[in-house]
Design a protein around this nucleic acid. Structure first.
Length: 165
DNA sequence: GCCAACGTTGGC
DNA sequence: GCCAACGTTGGC
């Protein structure tokens, strides 16, 4: 059935200069609104597929090395991203209509830090992860589905540890 | 910092 | 509705 594909696992990219894993751990409740997604495919995944409790791999992009820092989870399902209406915001969208918001976001909360950041280079060496969207050339989607199998492989490699209290 | 790959825009 | 031009992403 078209559209019946369901992922319970996701990978969220962020540039650590903009918002890092450390920023998430410092945030109240170790949670944040994932504002600023301005891509329709990503928006549709948030709107239609992401459910509270889904697992999230927290990934740093545009740094060397690129790394998965730990795991998070969806704690609030899709709702309007207010930054689209804010002319002062870098995410302002002059075409957005408050009566029918164009852009949505979800909230995420940190779950486990990885013992060591898990590099993309290491993931590339894992034949079990060959199908991962993250590792495909030109795959720019900033929030993307992760298979249950890939989630398990990465969780094992990352050796998640409890967050410091 | 470079630039290939990708998504969006807008003239026609 | 096509597609060239443009802006952005993100690995390297």
């Amino acid at each position: 059935v078209p559209g019946c594909f369901v992922s319970r696992y996701w990978l969220f990219k962020t540039e650590p200069d903009t918002f890092s894993w450390a920023d998430l751990l410092k945030a109240p409740g170790r949670r944040t609104a994932w504002e600023g997604v301005r891509n329709y495919q990503a928006r549709n995944l948030m709107r239609d597929e992401m459910k509270a409790g889904d697992g999230v791999l927290f990934y740093h992009s545009r740094v060397v090395p690129q790394v998965v820092m730990g795991t998070a989870k969806i704690v609030r399902e899709a709702y309007p991203d207010a930054t689209q209406f804010d002319p002062e915001s870098p995410y302002y969208d002059p075409g957005a209509n408050p009566a029918q918001p164009r852009w949505l976001m979800v909230d995420v909360a940190a779950v486990q830090a990885f013992k060591e950041p898990l590099s993309r280079d290491l993931l590339k060496t894992q034949s079990e992860l060959a199908d991962m969207m993250l590792l495909k050339k030109g795959a720019r989607l900033s929030v993307q589905p992760v298979s249950e199998h890939a989630w398990r492989v990465i969780a094992r490699l990352g050796e998640g540890v409890p967050l410091p209290s």
